[in-house]
Design a protein around this nucleic acid. Structure first.
Lengths: 342, 342
DNA sequence: AGGCTGGATGTAAACCTTTACAGAGCGCAT
DNA sequence: ATGCGCTCTGTAAAGGTTTACATCCAGCCT
């Protein structure tokens, strides 16, 4: 009602004295129309202010040029840069991004699939770590759209994954602690359900075994990756009075929780305890002591993931099952050699 | 090519033995079709797995049910929760969110407007604090779409604004410092170009004047709201050796920068200096000392903004020119009475 | 019996493109 | 002259809805 009345291809055609087919061709296959005609069309377009109506085009082409992003929480500092990467690549290739914040609510996940089933999105990016609820239910109801998983792999499903090599990165992190002289290293944030947590735990175990250090089950504490879970885990270790010299945390948020607990207990970091994180989210460099951690190349991950999805969309078969980036060890001040106190 | 061949309204009509008009009515105006028919249609829909093709509908209705969000950086911790609020309300009302990350690049802003001009988005949410470049240029080319500004008001344009009452909140923050006994209070983050910064500065001035404290120009330092600018501002004050007892920072990121500078100089916070922030972004509670700040009700702001935009879209005239929320003073540990050192 | 009302349904146009196919015009070789 | 090939353009169908308008029919009133 505000848009007055937009010019259509017909207005342009009339003004240029050609048929609508020619106008369309002038726009989409310029080589196929004579120079003089093309000029007239361009002029008519400029004069009318014509823009292609994307809805009509989409209907005809059966393509929306839109990608649906499913994420549990777009505010998560770990996602934000991935999002930017996704967006950069998508926008460069003429695609738009539809965001679906699911809060891990199955209902919302299912609801967002309406964009897929109603043809409003051509592909799907999964940041959730699992297939959206209700995607494969009714038999003929919905074919799986092209999709890729980013950050968190999707277990038990044949979906291309783009992310960091979590096992390898966790191994490197743990080896860094070992290299500083730590032998009693806790792993904070075990969670059998989450693929990322499991992989990082395996990397931790691999490093210990590689160094001939026995894995002590009491040094492995559950956690869901929140700051609060990190705090609680550290507290638990103090209650049990079975302490490590270093904490390897499943992510920076957890590490922050551990540091809060240690600070509250008036320990001197990193002299009394070393803390290592994973992710390198923005404030990790601001905290005191600044957190040593593994940095994910989030921007690259996002770009690569979008590139892969679009290739899938335009090309057909996926070329790779997974693309693993290397995480980079960022050395700051939260890790030091252990005190030789015994 | 993966979607086999979706069922159309015609398939449903054939199966139910009615015309396509009836199917459409059964879906959109159920009261207008007989009970028995409606049942047959429902059954046919279930059997075929039919879903309305949104593109066709959008084309016909001249509506996309899509909202474009223009933000300089979706990763900004200050935006993230606003985004969640926007998303919650939009999704509740059946709208989708298109994200446009502009990085403050005029080209990208202009590019994103293609969604508006090509009818792929019905409305616009501006988190940028200014009209997108290229919106009012060519005369008839593009009518202004319905839009609202969130977080940052848009100067010199008649656009509804939803956000916090920055002037009032800054006054409250400053008064809190004054109430603790501070008289030499710096304002870090002056920026004449940014509406938010200006408003907060005015609140700061109002509080000082209200308390009969003269405004000292040397206590007002420029800054663009980044952590680095906060650090640099604090350093500058030390170089000039003209020091406040408290720093009121235009936002938490700036406050963090100030604290980094103070920590590096081995000051004891908050004993030596008080620091007050604005925004209450997530890590403000984790930093040491935990930051006293003004909390923006971001979720509410987002929801309200979307509500307002949709009302504009569906109703017509805006009911309010602006909706101001009150920011809440969050008292933590970074503010204390000044040392009586002279 | 005739006419009127109102509810349920069908017909067809409109929304705006893209593109397969056909046709026109022209140069050139046969 | 005829035919062929090439370039450029036009015609019309198709994509899947929504909805104004027409139609039909049953019931009811006079």
């Amino acid at each position: 009602m505000l848009h007055k009345k937009l010019a259509t291809i017909e207005d342009v055609a009339a003004l240029a004295g050609v048929s609508i087919a020619t106008v369309s061709r002038a726009l989409n296959e310029p080589t196929k129309v004579a120079d003089s005609t093309r000029r007239r069309v361009s002029e008519a377009i400029a004069q009318t202010g014509y823009t292609t109506n994307a809805m009509a085009r989409n209907l005809r082409m059966r393509r929306s040029n839109m990608i649906l992003i499913l994420a549990p929480d777009v505010g998560d500092p770990n996602f934000s840069n991935i999002l930017v990467g996704l967006e950069t690549e998508a926008s460069k290739r003429g695609y738009g991004l539809l965001i679906g914040n699911t809060q891990n609510d199955p209902l919302r996940e299912a609801d967002y699939l309406r964009f897929i089933s109603s043809n409003q999105a051509d592909g799907l990016i999964l940041l959730t770590g699992h297939l959206p609820y209700g995607i494969g239910e009714a038999e003929g109801s919905m074919r799986l759209p092209p999709m890729v998983a980013v950050g968190e792999p999707v277990p038990n499903a044949d979906i291309p994954f783009i992310g960091v090599d979590n096992l390898e990165a966790a191994r490197i992190a743990t080896e860094h602690l070992i290299a500083q002289g730590h032998k009693r290293i806790a792993f904070i944030g075990r969670s059998s359900g989450r693929a990322v947590n499991s992989l990082r735990e395996r990397g931790y175990r691999a490093a210990l075994q590689g160094a001939g250090i026995a894995v002590d089950p009491a040094m492995i504490i559950d956690g869901d990756g929140t700051t609060e879970s990190g705090r609680a885990a550290a507290e638990l270790m103090f209650v049990r009075d079975h302490l490590p010299t270093a904490f390897f945390c499943v992510n920076d948020a957890t590490a922050l929780g551990v540091m809060i607990s240690l600070n509250a207990r008036r320990y001197d970091l990193p002299a009394d305890f070393s803390v290592m994180g994973f992710d390198d989210i923005s404030f990790s460099s601001f905290v005191t002591p600044a957190l040593t951690t593994m940095k994910q190349p989030r921007l690259n991950i996002g770009e690569r993931a979008m590139d892969m999805l679009l290739a899938l969309l335009e090309g057909g078969e996926p070329r790779e099952r997974e693309v693993l980036f290397r995480a980079e060890l960022i050395v700051r001040n939260s890790v030091k050699a252990p005190r030789t106190r015994f």
